[in-house]
Design a protein around this nucleic acid. Structure first.
Lengths: 340, 340
DNA sequence: CTGTTAGCGCTTTCAA
DNA sequence: TTGAAAGCGCTAACAG
């Protein structure tokens, strides 16, 4: 910077002003500075800038740890892909605030808290904190202090920005699909990392309360890392013996296995078993044979929207809608049979 | 920091020394400082530290842009997952240096160059630069300047660290599998984002030179974002009309479609068509029905190894092996038939 | 072993 | 419209 100032025959303050458009500078000096910057191949240090301005041009992306890592979840990745899309056109970058479980125990507070306190990030994008009792209080505090946060999930506060797809709502609709098509015994495969176990059960209770006939739902927790043998055994029990006529999968990664299993047992979809899944990427469930009905939860869009709201507000623009709902569309591909 | 110094009744240098273990400090003072830090809930600013020490505790992850984004590629994500695994147990974080194509044109140099020049990252993990003629020169220059880099791909220099799976080698083996099982007309589906198009053709040329009978390989470029109709048309041409007896997929995402297509046309694997794919995640090809043979390229391990080498060297440890080869295992699941 | 002091590279009053 | 100077929060000689 000194060199630039020298070469352009001005003071470093003027260089700074040119860099930031922060005050009026005589056009000829502006040109001189620009020229000098070019010739010297000058790149300002964001670090020093950050120190002076308390700004880092970094956005943290955090998910509370669970049995699975951020990168093990297709949903999280779709979210991140959307965030990345929005961020990559700006001068901000994404920092992955992924957390080791051991770390958490040592620090006794989520990684994102440290990053905020150290002024290493200007804003935060969070997912799933609602479901994490360890992280939630810290999140709430940051929110109360008006730290710029966009989170994916139900709104919890007046502060911050959020995007949500209404999990309770589309799960309820899903149950409704089975119910109205006459299914009364359904198997639900819930991924262990999804953190939504409790909410799922809640929705079931609500659904039962509001419907006359009993909907028998057996929940199996699946684990991406697990050996598939365990799942196969469950399928044997519940499909072959208990005769469930419907299957719900909350992630797509188990679908192949299910279809293979049914195939091997001479059962077909939807003739013998109806299937509904959640897809976080459009048409992920259309690649199977047969194609599978799904609720499409547009994680990519959600991440993108969250990031866009955050960036806008960071730039000082006013964001009118601080809470955004995205609809989870039900896509009928013929894997649901009416058994009445 | 001042407050801590005051509270502990020492100077800020002593606080700094305690923080960094940089010099011997009297135990009782150490305790006093530690205590003051706790009480004040003091968190040192990595930013200021970085400015003074020229260190940021950040590792950049970069892939040259191509038709697809980093987050659209399963391979890249597996890599990143491995990197994350290694990084998450350290005090470093990953910065995603994803690039917008428009950005690149504006800056006229890859994003990672700016990050290095701005001292925003301490090290760099790169993938696929070998195949990118735009990024390669910059990469080479950084390497020559001994900037800490670990890259995935063929070794190009004495400097830096690299991990490679030997693309040419396992592609050659793959061709060999088809050849020795009597296949002479094979369809190869190459993902457009993989950047490996040229290398693939090179390997074919080499293979043909070294084998007496002609291996007829038709390459189709697939595009993850594309409508699948185009691929189906190609399959009709090449499988139904040209009667290719083998299919090679370099990514798993097209497998479902292929199996569905074959199924609809009353063709079965491996009776009518033999299939080999590349899987970047263990047993990804085992979920299909029937299961598909694959070369397992352990992207997760590769990312992990790259990150580990980089971190070790950043910590000042000496890394003896600066180049690591990981073997791509061929897994036979019965989707290859001998047609002799 | 410890305090003083001069930076790291930039921003931002404050005067001029 | 511009320059001088005082920081941002920390580290690293240097001197004692």
């Amino acid at each position: 910077m000194y060199e630039v100032a020298e070469k352009a025959d001005v003071s470093i303050s003027t260089v700074s002003r040119v860099l930031n458009n922060s005050a009026s500078v005589k056009p000829n000096k502006v040109d001189a500075v620009r020229k000098a910057m070019k010739e010297l191949n000058y790149v300002p240090s964001e670090l020093a800038r950050g120190l002076a301005k308390n700004v880092t041009k970094m956005i943290g992306f955090y998910m509370p740890f669970s049995s699975i890592s951020l990168f093990d979840s297709k949903y999280a990745l779709e979210l991140l892909r959307g965030v990345d899309k929005a961020i990559s056109t700006t001068d901000y970058s994404i920092v992955i605030l992924n957390e080791d479980v051991a770390d958490f125990k040592k620090l006794r507070q989520p990684k994102f808290v440290n990053y905020v306190m150290q002024n290493r990030i200007d804003g935060l994008i969070l997912n799933g904190i609602y479901q994490s009792y360890e992280s939630f209080p810290y999140f709430k505090k940051l929110l109360d202090n008006n730290f710029p946060i966009a989170y994916i999930g139900k709104r919890v506060n007046k502060e911050g920005f959020n995007v949500y797809a209404g999990y309770d709502k589309y799960i309820y609709s899903m149950l409704g699909e089975f119910y109205k098509n006459g299914h009364r015994k359904v198997l639900a495969l819930i991924n262990k990392g999804s953190l939504n176990f409790d909410r799922f059960e809640q929705v079931i209770r609500k659904f039962r309360k509001e419907h006359s006939e009993y909907l028998d739902i057996t929940i199996i927790e699946t684990n991406a890392a697990d050996n598939s043998q365990q799942l196969i055994n469950s399928l044997k029990d519940l499909i072959l013996i208990k005769k469930c006529t419907g299957i719900f999968c909350d992630i797509t990664s188990t679908i192949s296995l299910i279809l293979t299993f049914l195939n091997l047992n001479n059962l077909s979809v939807p003739k013998d078993v109806s299937v509904i899944a959640i897809e976080h990427h459009k048409d992920d469930c259309a690649v199977y044979y047969p194609q599978i009905n799904s609720f499409y939860v547009p994680a990519y869009d959600m991440g993108k929207i969250a990031a866009e709201m955050l960036i806008s507000s960071l730039r000082g623009e006013i964001v009118e809608e601080t809470s955004r709902f995205v609809h989870a569309n039900y896509i009928n591909r013929g894997s649901m049979k009416n058994v009445n």
